[in-house]
Amino acid sequence: HPPSSTVLPPSLPPYFIRGSIIQLADGELKRVEDLKTEDFIQSAEISSELKIDSSTVERIERSHTSPNFAVVQFSVGEHRTQVSVEVLLEYPFFVFGQGWSSCCPDRTTQLLELPCTKLSVGDVCISLTLKNLK
C-alpha cells in the first residue's frame, strides 16, 4: 500500500510558543514546555474518543515543493500503517520519553523559544487516533 498522506497546518500554531497554557484532560494547566509523556498518556486514558498511538519515524526528506518544509514518514500504530506528513521544518512533534523534537530544532527554538531536540529516524512520536476506530 502506498503511504497515506496528510498535510499539517502550514503555519506554526500559537500553542507551540513557549509559555502557552495547555489544559490536560483532567483540567490541570501546564505550560507547553513542561509537558511530559505521562501528561499525554493520562489525558488520552481519560478521553472517551481519543487514544494515543505510537508513530515511529521511518524517513525524513526535504519537501519537493518548498525548501521550508519536510516530509516525515511515520509507521503508525500496531498495524504499522504508513502515513507521511508535510510540515514546516520547525514543526515540533512530541517524542515518547524525550519531549519536543523537530526536523530543525534550532529554528524551533529561535521561532517558538520551545526547547527542542532533533527529530530522527527511529524516534517514536505521540499521535492520536479515534478509540472506536475499527
Binding site: 496528510t6 489544559q23 494515543i52 500504530g77 502515513v83 506528513v85 505521540i126 487516533t129 476506530l133
Partner: peptide, 25 residues
C-alpha cells in the same frame, strides 16, 4: 501593577497530530 488578563488555554490534544491509520480490512 497590571494583572494578567485572560490567557488563551489550549486543549492538550491540539498539540498532537491526528494520524488516523487507514484500515485495510
Amino acid at each position: 501593577n497590571v494583572e494578567p488578563r485572560s490567557v488563551p488555554v489550549f486543549p492538550w490534544h491540539s498539540l498532537v497530530p491526528f494520524l488516523a491509520p487507514t484500515q485495510s480490512d
